[in-house]
Each structure stands twice: as structure tokens, then as C-alpha cells.
Amino acid sequence: MADPLLVTAGLALGTFAIRLGGYLLGGALPATGPWARGLNALPGCLIAALLAVLLVQAGPAEWGAAALCAVVAVLTRSLPLTMLVGIGAVWLARTLI
């Protein structure tokens, strides 16, 4: 079992190093060009991949709820609403199936 304290320490030190590193590198980091595009695209790519992993391991109840969440997210861009709809839909689907 992973030690949560060590995970916290690793994340904290690494994240602070990234934040301070950005400041120290400053002008050396390109604001445009391939590297900037790649770094900007990375979060979306990681979240898309994570969703793919989560949904492949899930079943019809989660797929239906995820589709509903996607519609709510696109229409409202509201985090609370998307989460509530998702939780409600998956609960309902699991109860019925």
C-alpha cells in the first residue's frame, strides 16, 4: 500500500518545483511554438486518456451517465450541475439495471 504522506510530499515538492521553475526559466520558456503548444495541450490529453481508462473499465450504467454528463457540461459548463446529474443518473441506472 502506498504511503499517502509520501505521495503528498512528492506531489508538493514536484509541484512547487514546477511553479518556481516556470518563474526561473521565465524568458527561456517559449510562449509560442511547438513546446508551448505541447505543454498547453497536455492537460486535455491526460484528462481525455483518463476518462477513456475509467469508462472502459465501467459498464452501461456509467456509459449512459457519462453521455448525460457530457450534454450537461456542454450546455451549462457548470461543475456542480454536471456532478449532481452524473451522480443521480448513475445511482438511478444502477438501481434499475
Binding site: I47, A58, A65, A70, A73, R77, S78, G86, I87, R94
Partner: peptide, 15 residues
């Protein structure tokens, strides 16, 4: 259904 909260949050994050 609370285990689904994060999948829902990630969908919004992606949006």
C-alpha cells in the same frame, strides 16, 4: 453513485 463524481468532474474539466 458518489464514486461517479470524479468521472463527471473530469467530463466538465475536459469541456
Amino acid at each position: 453513485g458518489l464514486d461517479f463524481a470524479f468521472t463527471a468532474a473530469f467530463i466538465l474539466l475536459l469541456r
